[in-house]
Each structure stands twice: as C-alpha cells, then as structure tokens.
C-alpha cells in the first residue's frame, strides 16, 4: 500500500541516487523514539513509515553503499511502475522488502519452504524468495499491500480471514492470503479437500488451517475462478 500508487517515484531503489547529498542525517534519537510504538509499526504508520524510509535511503547514500547495483529492472508493483537498480543475485523478496519497503511478504525460510513470501507474478503465485528479481523484469507483481485499495474496503479474502479468525500470529498470513486468492482464481477451491491440497505449500505453525479453509470457502464465491 503506502505511497506507491500516488507518488511518481517514491521507490527507494529508484531514488537512492538522486537523494543522496541533500538530505540531512537526522540522527538516531528521533528514529529511536519513532520505533517505540506499535501503532506506528502497524495500521496508522503510513506517513511515518514512508518518512522513515526516505531518511533511511538518505543515510544509505551518505554511508557506504550496502549493495552493488549490477543492473536495473523495471517492476510493475501493485499498479505502479518503478525502475530499480539491483544486485543480479537479489531475490524478488529482498528487492520488495529492502528496496521498495514492501514488507508485507515475509521471509520465513528464504528457501521456498514455508510460503510466507508468496506474491503474484503476472497473476500466478510464486515464492518470491526463490524468484530472482531479474526474472520479474517487466512483469506485473502484486503483493499483499496491493490486494486492496489504500483506505478502501478490504479484499474479500482479507475480510474472510478476519471473519473466520484465520490467523493468530499473522506472520504467514500475507502469504496465505496471496496463495488463497490464487488458489481460487486457478479454480482449485472447489472442495475442502482440494483447498487443503492446493494450500499445503503455505505453513502455519499456529495451526489456523481450519480457519483458513473456512475463509477461502467464504471468499471463493465472491472472487470466482477463471
């Protein structure tokens, strides 16, 4: 979500070169204070978070660059186009999380084993930790942040996860929801058995599988398969 949809070039990778010299380094004390409330970590954090990312990128500029940029890719993320300088070895997950500040996709294992990093690439679900960022060049990427419009109603699957209490700790949830939406669109949500099979790549250690199944069954008619 955040500012990607409204501003022309808010992405850190895209702007890091331009915004290096001029930005002041505000020091740790201010940020320390910001880091202390969860409300700012969570729902109401958009302004603060993007402010922090701008400062963060400024600092990266005045510091030694943390990564070498080998190439640049054009990513279409959640409806916004961005050109990002990347290290060729970067995974899509790392670029989303660290360069575009889209931290909804999670790193649970970094080996494609847990599903917490699931995003859509041209409408298909992928483990973004196993997807080289270069492979996403020129393709459409949807993350959990882009599933519903900012400030608008939740996507039916997100709402169903709340209605069915299909989460506890919530760490696997963005991946579960992205996988669930794809599962329905693929036409693999026809029966409970089918859903369990096609959702088995997304692990939930809290054991909310029953709620997840119910949520998918609730949302499926609203989303509809293709």
């Amino acid at each position: 979500m955040q500012d990607k949809t409204s501003r022309p070039s808010p992405l850190r990778g895209a702007q890091s070169k331009q915004e290096t010299a001029g930005e002041p380094n505000t020091g740790g004390g201010l940020l320390a204070a910001h880091l202390l409330t969860r409300r700012q970590f969570t729902a109401g954090s958009i302004a603060v978070a993007s402010g922090l990312s701008a400062l963060g990128s400024a600092c990266t500029g005045c510091d030694t660059p943390a990564r070498s940029a080998d190439t640049s890719v054009r990513l279409h993320v959640n409806g916004t186009r961005a050109e990002v300088d990347i290290d060729l070895r970067s995974s899509l997950l790392d670029v989303l999380r660290e360069q575009l500040q889209l931290t909804g996709a999670k790193k649970g294992c970094d080996h494609g084993q847990c599903g917490a990093c699931t995003v859509h690439l041209d409408g298909r679900r992928v483990a973004s930790c196993l997807t080289p960022a270069v492979q996403a060049d020129g393709r459409e990427i949807t993350t959990i942040e882009g599933l519903s419009p900012e400030g608008g109603p939740l996507h039916p699957m997100q709402q169903a996860f709340i209605d069915q209490d299909a989460l506890q700790c919530g760490y696997c949830t963005p991946g579960q929801i992205m996988a669930a939406v794809a599962c329905v669109r693929e036409g693999n949500a026809g029966s409970a058995e089918q859903i369990r099979e096609y959702m088995s790549g997304n692990l939930c250690r809290c054991g909310a599988y029953a709620g997840i199944l119910a949520a998918i069954q609730q949302a499926a008619p609203e989303i509809g398969g293709t």
Partner: peptide, 18 residues
C-alpha cells in the same frame, strides 16, 4: 493490520540511520 501486511514485525522495521 495483519491481513493487509501493515503490521511491522522486527525485520519489517525501516532501517535506522547508520
């Protein structure tokens, strides 16, 4: 916040200066 990806777990917190 958990279903929209807005919750900030520790590794989701923005980098601090330096």
């Amino acid at each position: 916040p958990k279903v929209t990806g807005a919750s900030r777990y520790v590794d989701d917190l923005p980098a601090m200066p330096g």
